[in-house]
Design a protein around this nucleic acid. Sequence first.
RNA 1: GGGCGGUUAGCUCAGUUGGUAGAGCACCUGCUUUACACGCAGGGGGCCGGCAGUUCGAGUCUGUCACCGCCCACCA
Length: 851
Amino acid sequence: MTPPAGRYDPQEAEPRWMARWLDSGVLTADPASGKPPYAIAIPPPNVTGVLHMGHALNNTIQDALIRWRRMAGDETLWICGTDHAGIATQVMVEKQLASEGTDRHALGREAFVERVWEWRENYGGQIIGQLQRLGCTLDYSRERFTMDERYAAAVQRVFVDLHDKGHIYRDRYMVNWDPGLRSAISDLEVEDREVTDELVSIAYPLIDGDGELVVSTVRPETMLGDTAAAVSPKDERYADLVGRRCRLPLVGRELPIVADDYVDPEFGTGALKVTPSHDPNDFEIARRHDLPAVDVIGEDGRMTADAGERYAGLTPAEASARVVADLDEQGLLRGREPYTHSVPFSHRSGARVEPLRSLQWFCDMDALAAPAITAVEDGSVRFVPANWGNVYLRWMNEIRPWCVSRQLWWGHRLPVWYRGDEIHVGLEAPEGEGWEQDPDVLDTWFSSALWPFATLGWPQETPELATFYPTNVLSTARDIIFLWVARMVMMGIEYMGEPPFSEVNIHSVVQAPDGRRMSKSLGTGIDPLELIEEHGADALRFGLLHMSSTQDVRFNAGSVQQGRALVTKLWNASRLVTERGGRVQAQAPTPELLADRWIVSRVASFVEEANALVADFKLSAFADGLYHLVFDDYCDWYLELLKGGQASVDVAAYVLEQLLALVHPVMPFMTEEVWAAIPGSAGMMLTHPPARAPGPRDQHAELAVARLQEGVRALRGFRTDRQLPPRTPLVVGGPGLAELPDEATAVDAFTPDGSTDGAGGAVVGLSYGQLHVRVEGADPGEDRAAERSRIGSEVERARAELARAEGKLANEKFVDRAPADVVESEREKVRRYTEELSALEQELSDMDGAS
RNA sequence: GGGCGGUUAGCUCAGUUGGUAGAGCACCUGCUUUACACGCAGGGGGCCGGCAGUUCGAGUCUGUCACCGCCCACCA
C-alpha cells in the first residue's frame, strides 16, 4: 500500500472494501467459535423494496452496533433476508400483468404464483445489494426469504400448533374488508381519514299506531340490511317505544325497537338503525339482542341480492343515491346535512374499508400476550427510549383477536383442508378423497413474527439457533411496534421460551426537509443512493447517525456534509502523520511529552464515553463526539503541537490508529483505506481490536493543555482586538505566564518575557492569572487609546461578574441553602475578579501616569 | 374522545442528576502558514412558545394555555 496521497475517492474505494469484507469470510457467523454471541435480526425489507432513507438510517445503526461488537471480540451475526410482502408483491406483479393486457384470474393461481417467483428471481431483492453499497456487514451467506421452503414449513407448523392449542379459530365475524384488494385486512392495516359525508335522517313508521322513529345515518344504503332500531334505555322520549316494532322503508321488514347502552341520546334524534352486517357497533348490538343479520354488501364491494332487486349489483355509492331518492319519493326523508367524520381506509390499497361479516381465521391473542406483557414489565425486554415500552404495554393490554387470513394468492397458504362441512387443520391433507385446501394465505406479519427464530432454522435444533437465539437488539422506527415487534415477542416466547431480543432501539423517523413525510408519492423522498453517489456511504452514514435521535428529525444535508468533512479530515491527518514518518509500532509507545500524554488521555476518556453512548444507542452523541475528538483535539491542537515539535510521531500514529478504530463502526470504508495506507499496519479495521489508550487519564496533562488553549486563545483574541495580523509576534509576561505551558510557543507566535516585572503593555485576564502582553518591537506607548478602551471593556466585564457573584452571596438564603461547593465557587469568583479588577485598574492608572 | 411527543441562535438539532445556554450549517472579519479552503483563526447572534407555581436558584420540576406532529379509539 502506498501512503495516502492526493484525494480520497469514496466511489472507487467503497465497493473495493465491501468486496474484501465479503471475501474475508468474517461476515459469516460461526456458531461454534466459542466467542460471546451478539446477534441482530434485520427487519426484513420487502422483496420488492428499494433502499429509502428509513432503511439507510436503521441499517446504519445496526451495522455500527454489529461492527462495534465484532471489534470488541464478539461472534456477531446480523441476520439477513427479505420479506415476501404478500400484498405489495402481488400488487406489483398484477400491475405487470395489467400492462400485458391480462390479469391473475386469466392466468390462474398456480401460474400466477409461479410468475411471482419469477419476478422475484429477476427483480426482487435488489435492496440486498443496496445494503452492501451502504457498507452493511450482514451475514449474506445466510440470506433468508420468508417464503423459503424451510421458513414456510415453520410458518405452517406454528399455525397448526396455535390451532391445536385453541388460539386459532374460524369465525364469521365483522372484519375490515378491503374492496380494492378483495381481502380482509387487520385492524392495524386500517387508517382513519377525515371525510365529509352526508348525514341522512330517515323515518321508520311504527307498526301499530301512528308515529315514526327517525334515525340518522351516513350510509343510507345499509338500511337495506337493518334488522332493528335502537334507542338508549335512559332516553325517556322513547321509553314507550322499546319493545314495539317499526317498518323498514323500501324493504318492508318489521324491525324490533331495542334499548341499548351504546346509543347516545344526545346524538341526532337519539335513535339508531341497526345493521349487524355492516357496522361493527351494530354487530355488537345484534349479539346482545340476538338479532339476525342480512348481508347487503358483498365481498365484491357491490350490493347483494339480499339488498333487493332494485339495488342488487350497484356500488354502495350508487345504491346510496337511489335509496335516498326512493325515500324522498315516499316522503320518508327527514333531513340531509353535511357531516364530517373519520372513516376507515385500507392502508394497503387506499380503498375505503367496508366493514362486513366474513368467514375468516382469527388468532386470539390474550394467552400469547400475557407473557409478552410480563417480559416488558419485568425488563427482560427493554425499550429504548423507555417510553415506547409504555406504548407497547397499552396496546398489548387491550389486544384484540387478529384476523390472519387474507384472500390473496401470494403468501403462505393456510394449512387447512375442507371436505363438505368437514374441516381439517394440519400440515397435510387427511387421508381420503375430496379434501381441498383453503385458498387463503396468511397475513404477511404472521410469518414475520417468527423471523428471529425461523431464520435460524427452527423448528430444527440448529447450532445457529442454539448460539444466537435470543438475539440482542432489535432496531426499528416506531411504526411497526405493534405490527411486528409485539408479535415477535409473543411468538418468540411461545416457541422459544424466551423473548427474541433483550433490547428494542426505537430511532427517529427521518422527515423531508420541509417537515412532511418522506414519500415517493408526495415527491418528498430523498434517495440515499444518490447521496452515496455524491458524498460516499461513509458521509451518509455519519450524517444519518448525527442528525437522528429519539425524536423525529427533518433531513439535514449539512450533517452529511459534516460527515464528508470528517472523512477528508482524517484522510489528510493521516497524510501528515505518515509524511512525518509515523508508522504502526509493534508495541504501544509510552507517552512522555505533555501533548502526547494529553491526547492519549483524551482518547482514554472518549473511549469510556463511547462505550456508554453505544450501549445506550446514543449514536448521535457518539458521532458528534468523534467529530470533535478528530477535529478539535487531534487536528487543531495535537497535530499543531506535533508540527511544532512538541509531540512524538510514534504517539501520533498510535493515536491515529485508535481514532480509526473508534470511527470505523460509523465510517467503515475510509477507515479501512487509511489504515491500509499507514506503514506497518496489518489486518483490516473490520476485525481490529477496539480503540484503547496506553494508560489511564492524565489529569495534570489535561489541565496543562486546557491552560495552554486558554492562553493561546487569549493571545489570538488580543491580536483581533488590536486588529493585528494573525501570528504577529508578541512578548508575554505577567503572573499567569508561569502556568502557561512552554509548549504554547509551538502553536502560537510569542516570546515569554524573562524579566520579572512582566512585559508591560496590555493585561489579559485568564482563569489562572493575568498575562501581560505587548507587540514585539513596538513602542508600548503606541495605541494607547485602543488599549485603554480594551482595558475599559475588560473592567466592565469583570465588574459585572463580580456584581453577580456578590449579589448571590448577599442573599442569605442562597448562602444558607445552596450546597457548600456552589457557594464556595461564588466566593472564589469574588476573589478572582477582585484581584483581576485591581490589576486592571492599576494598569489604567499606570497608563495615566505614563501619559 | 383518550394518550404520547415537540416548541432552545436565521436553519437543522443537542442539552446527563435544577447551579450564569451548546454544536453543525449560514452570517461577519482576517488568513493561498508545504496534512487539509470538504481548511485555519477570531467574532456577532438566544426574555430556551405564553402564563402561574415550587425553589436560594428553573431551558431543566409542577400546573395551565397556545400552536405543530404522531399513535390509539365502536358515536350513527
